[in-house]
C-alpha cells in the first residue's frame, strides 16, 4: 500500500532533490488564517505539510511553538477543527501529503479508532506523535499502520545503533531525524555530525530520512538537504506568523504571505542542495 507520502518521496527521488517539509501550527492564530497558510504552502514550494495539533503541554517544544500552540488554543482550535482544516485543504489539493504532528493525549481523548477513521476521511497521510516511543506501539502506531496511515518515528542522537532497529521497525513514510538533543527551535547542530547520522540511519533502512530541529534558513536547508531526503522547517515558519501579529494578536500583515515568502526561499535552498553537493 502506498500513501501520498510514498508517492511524493518517490517522485522527488527521480527529480534528484530533497523534500521541503513544512510545519505550521493548526489554528494559529485562528482557524481561517491558519487554513489560508496551509493552502499557500504547496505553491510556495512545500513538498510535505506537517500540520501541528496544539497541546497545552508540549514538552519537546521550544518557546516559539509553545506560544503558537497557546495562540491556537486561545483561538478555539481543537482536534476536531484540525481534522476539518485538513479536509478543507484536501478538497483543493489531493496530492500534497499531510502529516499530523503533536502529542498523544488529545488523540487518546478523541478515541484512537474514531481518530484514525476521521483522519483517513480528512485526507491525513501520516502521524508524528512525539510522546509515543516504540515501547508504546500498541497505543496508536500499530492501529494506524493497520488503517493505512504512515507512522513516522523520530530518531535522535541518543538513538544508538543497537536501538535503531527498534525505532525503525514500525516506521513508515519517512524517518524524522532530530538533529540535536533539545527542544524545537534551538540552534542547529554541527551539520557534519548530522550528515554522519543520516548516513548511519540509511545503513539501517530504505526509508527516506528527513532532518529537522534547528533548520531556519535557506542556506541551512541547502546544507542539510545535501545528504538528507528531506528538510523539516517548523519554528522559522511559526515565527513568521508571530512576527506579523501585534501585541494584542492583531494581524499587522498577511500571515499566509509572510509564510509563503519564507517557504519560497527555503524551497530554493533545498532545490539547490544536490547541485551544490555535486559541485
Amino acid at each position: 500500500m502506498t500513501t501520498r507520502i510514498d508517492r511524493r518521496m518517490a517522485k522527488l527521488k527521480t527529480e534528484g532533490r530533497p523534500a521541503l517539509v513544512t510545519y505550521f501550527m493548526g489554528g494559529d492564530p485562528d482557524y481561517d488564517t491558519s487554513l489560508s497558510i496551509m493552502k499557500a504552502l504547496p505553491g510556495a514550494g512545500s513538498d510535505i505539510i506537517e500540520l501541528g495539533m496544539p497541546f497545552s503541554d508540549p514538552m519537546a517544544d521550544g518557546p516559539a511553538i509553545q506560544a503558537a500552540g497557546l495562540r491556537a488554543l486561545k483561538g478555539g482550535q481543537t482536534l476536531v477543527k484540525t481534522l476539518k482544516m485538513a479536509s478543507e485543504f484536501r478538497a483543493g489539493d489531493n496530492e500534497t501529503p499531510i502529516v499530523l504532528m503533536g502529542y498523544y493525549n488529545p488523540i487518546y481523548i478523541y478515541g484512537v479508532d474514531r481518530f484514525l477513521k476521521d483522519a483517513l476521511a480528512s485526507g491525513i497521510d501520516g502521524l508524528i506523535v512525539v510522546d509515543l516511543p516504540p515501547e508504546m506501539d500498541e497505543e496508536l502506531c500499530i492501529p494506524a499502520l493497520k488503517a493505512g496511515i504512515n507512522f513516522i518515528r523520530l530518531a535522535t542522537p541518543t538513538t544508538d545503533d543497537k536501538r535503531l532497529p527498534k525505532v525503525l521497525q514500525n516506521t513508515s513514510g519517512f524517518v524524522y531525524y532530530v538533529s540535536m538533543t533539545g527542544i524545537t527551535g534551538s540552534a542547529l547542530a554541527d551539520t557534519g555530525k548530522v550528515a554522519a547520522a543520516v548516513t548511519r540511519i540509511k545503513g539501517h533502512t530504505d526509508l527516506p530520512v528527513c532532518v529537522g530541529f534547528g533548520v531556519k534558513t535557506a542556506e541551512q536547508a541547502r546544507v542539510i538537504g545535501a545528504n538528507a531526503d528531506g528538510v523539516v522547517v517548523g519554528t522559522a515558519i511559526v515565527n513568521a506568523v508571530a512576527n506579523v501579529l501585534g501585541p494584542k494578536g492583531e494581524k499587522t500583515a498577511d500571515p499566509a504571505e509572510a509564510v509563503a515568502t519564507l517557504v519560497s526561499g527555503l524551497a530554493q535552498g533545498v532545490r539547490s542542495a544536490r547541485l551544490a553537493a555535486a559541485e
Binding site: M59, P133, L154, R163
Partner: peptide, 19 residues
Amino acid sequence: QGMFGIFGGRFVAETLMPL
C-alpha cells in the same frame, strides 16, 4: 512495561527513551 493496569507507561520523546 511499567504499567499499573492501564496506568503508567513510558510516554516520552525518543530522545529521552534511552535515558
